[in-house]
Design a protein around this nucleic acid. Structure first.
Lengths: 196, 196
DNA sequence: CTTAAAACATACTAATTAGTATGTTATTTA
DNA sequence: TAAATAACATACTAATTAGTATGTTTTAAG
């Protein structure tokens, strides 16, 4: 029961990479099997169907990644505005798990799966709300510690921040270059400063 | 040579609607034929292949729509900040050509096609730059007329604005409700005011 | 060491896909 | 009005798709 878990995880990881690069519909099961070096029997032993595997990717891979790379860096920080800016900078510029030419995995999934599969919407909405809450929380904390104006609407702000992130990810995908990230980050910094 | 043009346009329009709703890969040619009530022979008489039709959608449908609905409203206006806000409000709330559950057509196309068709990237980049330039121009004009601070980086700002738009469109798609648009617009208005 | 179930592997199927080959009908143009 | 070509229509194909049926091998428990 240990090796089986490993194969499952390996399949999820390779599937994620393929889907992230090519899109969900375009990453066929045969593609996945070819890169994972396992057979169809193994795939359908671990997953009822392709959509169930897609949901597993969200819940078992993306969710933990969100917690570690998108939320944890915000917690236990002094200046929330610095923390948020640094997180964005890291995600856009330094993080080498995310590729500029592939955009944001969550946004990609949303774009492609939302019209089709209600379960995907729910799962994606969950992780999105998680991130939103984390940003809202750190902003709210900043109001207490005096880093942020008392009249700032933190929910509104975090929605605005996340929207910008998704948008610039799509922009990077189109431009196929991280260069667009830099002016975005500059303006983002200016925006954050207006919350002081 | 008049009726033929009409069939072609009709096919493009119906194809656009299908692709907008279901995604490019997922809108099969047979789907398109079924809704347009024409046959495969007609389709391949007018278009060399599916991708050429997709490009025609961008160049012959989306480009004119961009000019009329996304750019023209910005021109010949007094207050550029009002003009930009009103444009966003109209696009998100009032425009009934764009559907909240389907997101932004250009962003959808970018997401889906960019990884594997260079021509799509080029075409989409063109219309994107067009919109960016229009926003930059109206901001620049605002600097002259005194509505906007002289030290505002207009290119940076328009990139930030467009990113936000794309992002909130994706958000609306996920939430499947225009309600998320309202807090976004509120924060967007606040952001625009910082440019004064 | 046996045996039962877990964990895979192989070979298929039925449906769908983009695209083609070969027609027929409508529309110009001479 | 006749012939040429534009504008379609029909019937196919080969490839790819998700998924299944039926195996074989590995692993773990008694």
């Amino acid at each position: 029961m240990k090796k089986a878990e490993a194969t499952r995880l390996n399949m999820l990881e390779k599937s994620f990479e393929l889907i992230y690069a090519k899109g969900y519909q375009n990453a066929s099961i045969d593609d996945i099997l070819a890169t994972t070096q396992v057979t169809k029997g193994a795939f359908y032993y671990h997953f009822k169907n392709k959509d169930e595997m897609g949901l597993a990717i969200i819940n078992e891979l993306m969710k933990p990644t969100l917690a570690k790379s998108f939320i944890e860096p915000l917690q236990n920080t002094k200046n929330p505005l610095d923390a948020i800016y640094n997180l964005m900078y890291h995600l856009l510029i330094e993080n080498d798990f995310l590729k500029v030419e592939y955009g944001c995995p969550a946004a990609n999934f949303t774009q492609e799966m939302t019209p089709w599969n209600e379960d995907f919407s729910k799962a994606l909405n969950e992780i999105t709300q998680e991130w939103l809450k984390a940003i809202t929380a750190v902003l709210e904390e900043g109001k207490k510690t005096g880093y942020i104006r008392k009249d700032v609407n933190t929910k509104q702000t975090s929605l605005f921040v996340l929207s910008g992130y998704w948008g610039i990810r799509n922009f990077g995908k189109l431009a196929n270059s991280k260069e667009v990230y830099l002016p975005y980050l500059e303006e983002f910094k200016m925006y954050l400063n207006t919350l002081k």
